[in-house]
Design a protein around this nucleic acid. Structure first.
Length: 319
DNA sequence: TTAGGGTTACAG
DNA sequence: CTGTAACCCTAA
């Protein structure tokens, strides 16, 4: 008689995801008590949270305790082995990232509407694009503030752990590059920005970070070629590739930080890259639970990021 | 309180 | 009927 089934609203779902991101899965009571989520989740019990998370994990292709071994991965997304692979990149280059101690479970990360199955075009959603998309969709006359932008992105996609920081950094960078305008704490898209740009050394803005609607293919044809290659890789190969890309990215970041002394703008980019890398490396720690799709996204992002950084450091020399 | 199996409601 | 999402039951 009572409840006709209370469907979860997107808001509640977002709150749950955010809660898990903050406190980790399994801390349902904690999440519920957190003043940041208690408002949105007041109608839910800790058990509800647990059940909902279980459902999300299942539909997201995660491996909860609930999957009935069903759901044949749509197409030919075969997964040879999901077992842990040796691949000792952990001890090598990234000893400084033991922050993965937090939770033993990377949980089934919800890869939302991302589908790069077969379309390089709208495949990976980069933060830059998400920010632009958020502002466009919100359609606020005077622009949108950071909170609104963050809320939109969090609802639509699964935000990385370092999301808030990344977002702030990116917004700043976008303003500096002239892509966005900041007025009274609000951001709005610069109407078809010409070349402008405060720094004359910024030769990358028109190349990578730009691209009104298709900023996705910011990279060169080379990147696309690499992407094509990656799509045919096995999980192990992709992992190795990613490890290499990360190593290159780290070198690039180091150089970027060096270059930051001369160009202030470089600092923000280096910071964004660093934050991104941290998120990536911690994810890699838990790669065993990552799906193939997630891996492709990850690899592509890593490669793109390292490419952008290399480009920034040496616009003409990178090939 | 939580994890996991079981049950009910509902859509296709 | 079948699959999924929300809800229930219970051991630990």
């Amino acid at each position: 008689m009572g409840a006709p089934k209370q469907r979860w609203t997107p808001e509640e779902e977002a709150a749950l995801k955010a809660g898990v991101a903050k406190h980790g899965p399994g801390k349902w009571r904690t999440i519920l008590r957190d003043p940041e989520f208690s408002a949105l989740l007041r109608l839910r019990s800790n058990v509800d949270l647990k059940d909902k998370w279980r459902n999300l994990s299942v539909t997201a292709g995660g491996y909860g305790s609930r999957e009935k071994a069903r759901m044949a991965l749509k197409k030919g997304r075969r997964v040879p082995k999901i077992t842990a692979e040796p691949m000792d990149i952990d001890a090598n280059d990234m000893d400084n990232v033991d922050n993965a101690v937090i939770d033993a479970q990377p949980l089934a990360v919800a890869v939302e509407p991302l589908q790069l199955e077969s379309s390089p075009e709208k495949s990976v959603a980069r933060l830059d694009d998400l920010i632009l998309e958020a502002i466009k969709k919100l359609k606020e006359p005077s622009g949108s503030n950071k909170t609104a932008i963050a809320a939109y992105i969090e609802e639509q996609y699964w935000p990385p752990a370092d999301f808030q920081r990344l977002l702030s950094t990116k917004l700043k960078a976008l303003v500096v590059s002239g892509k966005l305008m900041k007025v009274n704490q609000k951001y709005r898209i610069t109407p078809s920005s010409p070349l402008l740009g405060g720094k004359s050394t910024k030769s990358y803005s028109a190349e990578d970070m730009k691209g009104e609607s298709n900023a996705r293919q910011l990279t060169k044809p080379q990147v696309d070629a690499e992407l094509e290659k990656m799509k045919g890789m096995t999980k192990e190969e992709a992992a190795e590739f990613a490890a290499k890309a990360v190593a290159e990215a780290e070198v690039a970041i180091a150089e970027a930080e060096e270059a930051a002394r001369v160009a202030e703008a470089a600092e923000t980019d280096a910071e964004a890259a660093k934050a991104f890398l941290d998120a990536v490396t911690s994810t890699m720690k838990n790669r065993n639970a990552a799906s193939t799709v997630e891996w492709n996204i990850l690899c592509y992002d890593i490669y793109t990021m390292s490419t952008i950084i290399c480009w920034y450091i040496n616009p003409t020399g990178y090939s």
